[in-house]
Computed example of a mutant assay.
Amino acid sequence: MPPSGPAPRRAVRDLDQLRAALAGAERAEGWGIAQGLDHNAFGGRPVDRALIEDNRPI
């Protein structure tokens, strides 16, 4: 019998993976629901929304 509950989360290791995760993320009032973001996904750049702005809700 398959396990119940949400699918296991995958580690996000770079900006491309972060953008993909955000594109498919559950949303609540326009906010992407997530947890445990590793700041290393930003590749040493300052954490800034400009790096992922293409995933803003419409």
Rank of each mutant, 00 (worst) to 15 (best):
Q17S: 13
D14G: 12
I33Y: 01
D38A: 13
A23W: 03
L18Q: 11
G24K: 09
A11N: 05
G36K: 03
L18C: 06
W31K: 06
L18N: 10
G32I: 00
D16I: 04
G36S: 10
P8E: 05
H39P: 15
A23N: 04
P8S: 03
A23C: 02
R27S: 05
R27M: 15
N40V: 06
D16G: 15
R10S: 14
G36A: 09
D16C: 07
E29P: 00
A34T: 14
N40A: 12
V47M: 13
Q17I: 00
F42G: 06
G43H: 02
G5D: 01
A21Y: 11
R19S: 08
V12D: 05
G44T: 13
R9D: 03
R9Y: 01
P8K: 01
R10G: 00
A25Y: 08
R19M: 07
G24L: 08
R10C: 02
L15Q: 12
P6W: 04
A11D: 15
P46C: 01
P8D: 03
P6S: 07
A28L: 14
G43V: 07
V47H: 01
H39F: 10
P46M: 07
P6D: 05
R13G: 15
A23G: 11
Q35S: 11
G5I: 00
R13A: 13
L37N: 02
W31D: 08
L37C: 12
D38Y: 03
A21L: 04
W31G: 00
D38K: 12
Q17W: 00
V47N: 00
V12R: 02
D48C: 11
G30Q: 07
E26I: 01
G43K: 03
R9N: 03
L22C: 09
A7N: 04
I33D: 00
G43C: 05
G30T: 06
L15Y: 07
G30P: 05
Q17C: 02
P6E: 07
L22T: 10
A23F: 02
G44L: 12
A41P: 09
R19A: 12
P6G: 02
P6R: 09
R10L: 12
R13Y: 03
A21W: 11
A11L: 14
H39I: 14
V12K: 02
P46L: 10
A34W: 10
I33W: 01
A28I: 12
A28H: 14
N40L: 12
V47L: 15
G30Y: 04
Q17L: 09
R27F: 03
R10Y: 00
E29M: 02
D14F: 06
G32F: 03
P46W: 05
A20M: 08
V12P: 05
G43D: 12
G32D: 09
W31H: 10
R9S: 06
G30K: 07
R10N: 04
R27K: 15
P8G: 01
R27E: 14
G43P: 11
A28F: 13
